[in-house]
Design a protein around this nucleic acid. Structure first.
Lengths: 346, 346
DNA sequence: TTGTAGGCGTTATCAC
DNA sequence: GTGATAACGCCTACAA
């Protein structure tokens, strides 16, 4: 800022000996409506271009009560899954002339709250967020302030807000069933952030698949506490050290799977010969790993795109708090590669 | 926006029968300076909290000529290298109370220009950008408007702007020398976006290493045109189809390397037995690939952090256009793994 | 067809 | 110690 040469409506209007309103109208394409002469319009447009005029969005937002700005808060921009979602939201937004304020909460509620406050102060038109855990007071508050909010990836079942994510339950269940079909009974589960909805859904899918096939659910086989590589590593070590030997591991994220691969390698075991592995969330590198990973693939592009559409709808509609919101779960796909051994045929 | 209940300085001052100025002063911690009584101050603070007051940053920015907003434009948020940089910039910024507007240019100059205009209209305090190619008119213009700009990853040698990136030339050169030391002479080079500075530096490093070891530079062995997986795949296919058989390939990005791996696998060849591979840019998954990749590692965290510091300095300093800017190149590190064969010992 | 004036929420400059 | 009032740059009734 502090550009002495910044051209404004006033500077242009003075230059042309016209009023600001005329200039404003012409510049916002309302020449017809106000029947501004073609000559004047043309003159204004040219001058604006000559002086490189850009409307000051601060001033604009102040009066319009609309900033064309949307906030995004995600737990980890470094995770390709979220990066991908952000990419598509940003693209859709840009095509609409709306800009994106971004925050990486690093899975910390405190950061999430800070950023939300910041964004509110900056008068965002709406928010797309993948909340950390179950703490939701700040979102409640924002909702009461009538700020349009769309949840992605992680849901709050007890908070009526629109949501787009994956069929975590079904996706996991199918994967576990695939393992069972291949003869696996002792299946370790390395979970992510325990209090996150995605994680709970995945654990439930795991549990449900087991129970449907009359395999007792053993809480001992569920380990871990976040979605990172390190957790995959220690979780796997832990599983391998147990009395009960697992024949397969389900990793609740692809980063967890990387840690699992490392730990298994170090133990001198081999995937899938000695132990099978499936990971939730396909990523571009999964097919190139030392064992091409069988994964549960999510539609991250669609999640981003739909989230933005939902938010747009919400922003357009007045008094959006009254109707119940859509909760959209996109189907997942099991991508079969070579990390699962068929125990039946051996 | 359009929250009927939004509390403002006016609403608070009316509520307390005080003037806006007093409320404003107390709320911005200027009670001492203006000797506002403790009682009044306390009252104001409490009321503000009670009504959940947040200053409207639009109004603030309008008068302060400072928005505490910084724009970031990068070519691909999906690339972990950039995602990582963004993460650290955002974190440093947040600690300072500044928010990040983000844009993913998808390596298209037109998008870059659009976003820059948007950001200028939004009165960002500064910009951190990794520009697409050699088109720089829009950056020149922004620079003339006195907008603080810091370049990351990709530099313009002929445009005096601060820059933080890696020693692309030296990093590549060292890697190529390592290959040469291991007996490789026919080295294919799969490049990224040809007109980007990083790419040119890497190609030059390659060339320089060859020449220093009296190996003729063969332009036929330099193929490719962007940093993606697909390009790595087709580039490798092309290299493999040539008369002259290469014994090693240098991939100018890790994504390119993935494509290379795929193409090599499909050809029935084996890394490193039949062909060696080194990739520029270490990423978290590189050690888990089918052949653990030897890579050139960059300090992405530091790039992000330093870029933000440079930008902050720039924003603070008046008339920053007069002194020549720092161009910082951070050293890289060759991470040795198992994708290179020693031809001398075979 | 164009202009005037008020206001958006904040800070800064005077004044009392 | 506190209060008016004028900006900041824009939009939009309401006039003319």
């Amino acid at each position: 800022m502090r550009k002495p040469t910044d051209s404004t409506l006033v500077s242009i209007s003075k230059h042309l000996n016209l009023s600001v309103s005329t200039v404003s109208r012409a510049l916002s394409g309302q020449s017809k409506k106000y029947r501004i002469s073609d000559k004047t319009t043309k003159l204004i447009l040219e001058t604006a271009r000559k002086f490189n005029y850009r409307p000051n969005q601060l001033a604009r937002g102040l009066i319009l009560k609309r900033t064309n700005t949307v906030g995004i808060i995600i737990p980890d921009i470094t995770n390709p899954f979220f990066a991908n979602i952000v990419r598509w939201i940003e693209r859709a937004a840009r095509d609409n002339g709306v800009s994106i304020l971004i925050s990486d909460s690093n899975d910390q509620t405190s950061v999430e709250q800070t950023s939300l406050k910041e964004f509110i102060g900056r008068k965002i038109d709406g928010l797309i967020i993948s909340p950390v855990g179950q703490e939701q007071s700040h979102l409640r508050e924002a909702k009461e302030k009538q700020i349009p909010i769309v949840l992605i990836d992680r849901n709050f079942s007890n908070l009526d807000l629109p949501y787009v994510g994956s069929e975590n339950f079904q996706g996991t269940k199918s994967a576990i069933e695939y393992l069972i079909k291949n003869g696996h009974q002792k299946i370790g589960f390395i979970q992510g952030l325990p209090e996150s909805s995605v994680n709970m859904d995945r654990v439930n899918g795991y549990r449900d698949a087991l129970e449907e096939h009359h395999i007792p659910f053993d809480p001992e086989l569920v380990v871990g506490n976040d979605f990172g590589v390190e957790n995959g590593y220690t979780g796997t070590k832990l599983l391998l050290s147990k009395e009960e030997k697992v024949t397969a591991i389900f990793a609740a994220s692809n980063l967890i799977a990387l840690g699992t691969i490392k730990a298994i390698n170090e133990s001198g075991l081999h995937i899938p010969r000695d132990i099978s592995l499936i990971a939730y969330d396909e990523q571009f590198f999964c097919e190139y790993l030392s064992i091409p990973l069988t994964t549960v693939s999510q539609q991250s592009k669609e999640i981003g795109y739909i989230a933005y559409q939902l938010l747009t709808d919400l922003i357009k509609s007045e008094d959006s708090n009254n109707k119940p919101f859509k909760k959209i779960e996109l189907p997942t796909k099991l991508i079969l590669r070579n990390s699962v051994k068929d125990l039946n045929s051996s």
